[in-house]
Amino acid sequence: MEADPFVTQKEIAGQLNLSYAGIRYHTDKLKAKGILQRSGGKKAGHWKVIR
């Protein structure tokens, strides 16, 4: 997500050979911990990794 902030959860699932639901579960956990943030909408948005 740092290398490509415009990557979608479906693309990540395909790259990691995981289900979309699994990727969504993990991104939701990271967002709850304040590590990951989504800015913008579903189509034109991007990810921010907060350290």
Rank of each mutant, 00 (worst) to 15 (best):
1 M>I: 06
2 E>W: 00
2 E>Y: 00
3 A>R: 11
5 P>M: 08
6 F>S: 09
6 F>K: 14
8 T>G: 10
8 T>W: 02
8 T>F: 02
9 Q>T: 13
10 K>T: 12
11 E>N: 10
11 E>A: 14
11 E>L: 07
11 E>F: 01
12 I>L: 12
12 I>T: 11
12 I>S: 03
13 A>T: 08
14 G>L: 13
14 G>C: 07
14 G>E: 14
14 G>K: 13
15 Q>S: 06
15 Q>I: 08
16 L>F: 12
17 N>G: 05
17 N>W: 02
17 N>Q: 13
18 L>S: 04
18 L>Y: 12
19 S>M: 01
19 S>T: 15
20 Y>F: 11
20 Y>G: 03
21 A>C: 00
21 A>N: 09
23 I>T: 08
23 I>P: 02
23 I>S: 05
24 R>K: 14
24 R>A: 13
25 Y>H: 15
25 Y>K: 15
25 Y>M: 14
25 Y>R: 15
26 H>R: 15
26 H>A: 11
26 H>C: 08
27 T>I: 14
28 D>V: 08
31 K>C: 11
33 K>T: 03
33 K>L: 09
33 K>G: 02
34 G>F: 02
34 G>I: 05
34 G>Q: 03
34 G>M: 05
36 L>A: 11
36 L>K: 13
36 L>G: 09
37 Q>M: 10
38 R>C: 07
38 R>I: 02
39 S>I: 15
39 S>Y: 05
40 G>R: 06
41 G>I: 01
41 G>M: 04
41 G>P: 02
42 K>R: 11
42 K>A: 04
42 K>L: 05
43 K>D: 01
44 A>W: 06
44 A>K: 15
44 A>E: 13
44 A>F: 08
45 G>A: 10
45 G>F: 07
46 H>Y: 14
47 W>S: 03
47 W>F: 09
48 K>M: 01
48 K>S: 05
48 K>G: 00
49 V>M: 03
49 V>P: 00
50 I>Q: 06
51 R>K: 08
51 R>V: 00
